[in-house]
Amino acid sequence: MGLIGLIFGWPLAPVKAVIRLGELIQEQAEQELHDPAVVRRRLEEIERSRADGLISEEEEAQEMRQVLQAMTGGPE
């Protein structure tokens, strides 16, 4: 059965590899999304933009809310 499975499974190997690659990318993205250091850097960037006058107070609040919701998995 191993040889038959290998013969019939071989054409599907590239598809399985692409699926696994997609899963790995998704896992990495989720890890970065929930990484406290990444979130902190993003929040600091938002604060700097506000201090430099690049964004308004409302935009700052909205962006911070989006970052925190993404981190906690809350509704957007």
Rank of each mutant, 00 (worst) to 15 (best):
V67E: 01
L33K: 11
E44D: 15
M1K: 14
L6W: 13
I7S: 05
R50L: 15
H34C: 06
L24S: 14
E47D: 15
A70T: 02
A29D: 04
P11R: 05
I55R: 01
H34P: 00
Q69S: 10
M1N: 10
E32Y: 09
E44W: 01
R20T: 12
R42C: 06
A37P: 00
R40H: 08
L43E: 05
D52C: 10
I55S: 01
E58Y: 06
Q31P: 00
L24I: 13
E58P: 02
Q26R: 14
L68K: 05
A51I: 13
G53I: 07
G2T: 04
G2R: 07
L54N: 07
M64T: 13
M71W: 07
L33F: 02
V15N: 09
G5Y: 12
G74M: 03
A51D: 14
I4P: 00
V18S: 13
P75I: 03
P36F: 02
I19K: 15
R42W: 02
P36E: 03
G9A: 06
L6N: 07
Q31Y: 02
Q28N: 15
S56M: 09
L21K: 13
E60D: 07
I4Y: 11
E57Q: 12
I4E: 06
V15R: 12
E45W: 04
V15M: 15
V18L: 15
A37T: 06
L43N: 05
M71Q: 09
P14K: 08
A61P: 03
G74A: 11
G9N: 05
E32W: 08
L54K: 11
V38E: 00
H34M: 10
A51V: 14
L3T: 14
G2W: 05
E32V: 07
A37F: 06
R41A: 07
A13L: 15
P36M: 01
G74L: 06
E45R: 10
E30D: 12
G53L: 04
E57H: 09
H34R: 15
G73H: 01
R40D: 08
D35F: 04
I19G: 05
F8Q: 11
P75Y: 01
P14W: 10
G22R: 11
L24K: 13
S56Q: 08
I46S: 01
P14S: 09
E76A: 05
R41D: 03
E58L: 13
G9T: 04
P11A: 10
V39K: 02
G5A: 13
G2V: 04
G22C: 08
I46F: 03
A13Q: 14
A37K: 03
V18C: 05
G2L: 07
R48F: 10
E45N: 14
G22D: 10
L3H: 11
R50K: 14
E63Y: 07
A37R: 07
M1Q: 12
H34F: 04
M64C: 10
W10V: 06
Q31H: 06
E47H: 11
A37Y: 03
A37M: 03
V39G: 01
G74Y: 00
M71I: 00
L54Y: 08
A13F: 15
E47Y: 05
Q28S: 14
